[in-house]
Design a protein around this nucleic acid. Sequence first.
DNA 1: TCTGGCGTTGTATAA
DNA 2: ATTATACAACGCCAG
Length: 638
Amino acid sequence: MGGKKPPRVIYWFRTDLRLHDSPALKAALDLQPEVLWPIFTWDPHYVYKVKGGVNRWQYLLDCQNDLSGSITKLNPKSKLFVLREGPQTLFPKLFKAWGVTHLVFERDTDTYAKERDRFVMQLAIKAGVEVITRYGRTLWDSDEVVAKNGGKPTMTIMQLQHAGQKIGQIPKPIPAPVSLPDPGETPLNFEHNEPDSRPDLNAEYRENKDKTYSTISGPTGDFAPETLEELGFPSATTPHRGGETIALKMLSDIIANKEYTATFKKPNTSPAAFEPQATTLLSPAMHFGSLSVRLFYWKSQEVVDGYGKGASSPPESLTGQLLFRDMYFAAQAGIGAPFLQTLNNSHVRFIPWHLPSKYTEDADNSDGPTTISGEYQVDSPVAEKWFQRWKYGVTGFPFVDALMRQLRQEGWIHHLGRHLVACFLTRGGCYIHWERGADVFEEWLLDHEPACNAGNWQWLSCTAFFSQFYRCYSPIAFGKKWDKSGALIRRYVPELKDLDEKYIYEPWKAPPQALAAAHVKIAGDGMGDAKEGVYPEPMLDFNERRTVCMNAMKVAYQIGLRGDDKKVKDGSWKKLFEDAGEKEMEGAEIPSDDNGSEADDAENENHKRPRKTRTGRKSDAVKEGPMDRHFKKVKAGS
DNA sequence: TCTGGCGTTGTATAA
DNA sequence: ATTATACAACGCCAG
């Protein structure tokens, strides 16, 4: 140890944008660094390959700005240095130029991020840089939970709790640092790699030219966090703002209300409440790591312990919600990448929903496709129309539409609201694949967490975690139960704001006088330009569809295929359902005479599509390393 | 190995 | 108004 150079440490912030309760940051400071650079790198994967609405970008920028300010408060010379280049190309140059000895970060949980981090660790080893990581994203280390659950993913809350008990007490929160070392010099005497932005899944959101990667240190040259303008985005529409300061204030306000905290029962909170919402709204903060889940856990638990009789307990309680979050993370850790899809997922039921995902060809896998491509098959034009009407909140069912519009505008809806719209899209109405719904939530939710999103969609669609498909949410009755007067509908579906409460959940039943008095007409499908004073007709007969869906679910359960079944991959599942007389999936066939060959063609269509690599190149795709597809090769001589 | 009880968050109807 | 029950019936978990 004696002859070693004093530590020059990069602390790499990613999804842990906070100073309070950060085990990884503590590990960095325990090195007693000579200099410490708090950095954030702009990963092109998230900029271009993860579809995300402007609201979530705003929330991320809020978190970065707040964190940078908090760092500067501890050391006026320091801040969050935001570097506009992918970590895979940036780090080797940075290690050398800045004389780095240690790289420290909190471990990630997503497939892409884990792969990226393995790659970066190899770069560090090559450069003689020591890497230190800690977990801090979950209550317990998800890999340890899986190990204690017999090496299996946690598919019930009981399994999670048992595994957690075996591991031991959830670590107590670590106080925020009271001081931070100076940052070192930040020379940029190296070439800047601009990533390949194609395809840019967020192009539709950009109003102006994307300048994300124009320079490493940003337009002002001082590594300041980006602005929406720099990313080419318009202003956000969400009222929910990010940042550790706000998150800690929200948490302290919640726990100051001892009765709310100690007696919280999730199923008793209203999905129709707004201003204020019935739940904590801290899920986006946990997603970006501006709030530590363990700090939340222990602050809540202390209130429960001090409350005595009458306190709620898991799974309904506040801490119970955090346990469910850990359950999904440990399910993902146990199953791996297929957790986010049906294909190749041994724990998810196969149901022949409409609008199924297309598969990505795997040249190196003779066993058939293993991943979904992000595109889907329009097997039924009617289902596609239902899906679009669901997504944009013009189904003609006011409570569904209110929730979907709230989601799109604000990036957040109550958990039970998510239940209703998810059930309606899948097993309780449209019979559309849960992966389609998960795509929309991924795009619009501020708190989008891949593991929790996929897990909850599996739950609601009764493909994993939950199986009582005969319990079906009604788009009419469920809202009424919580909000008889339809306040949520009046707020988010203003066309109906003056409609008599008797008809607010079923406006198509309103007599002409009631509609005239409310200055609204019930007409059309809601697609195209919105017309003043017009609200669409219901897109389906819910009672009829509920019966159809339930019968179809029953058949699918009897057939009992899982996502990793060979028949799912090769398309031979179809015959099983035909033999069982399943009618709903007939929409999944191209109308044809009895030989069935056209249907087979439709099924094989995705295998015939030309190979599309992420770089858009074809011939040299095989020679690429695992991370190469995320950025351009260094431009020779430029 | 079998079995009854129960599962964070359903609905419609009846008492 | 609250509470019970049928609906048609999954699958984990503990005994």
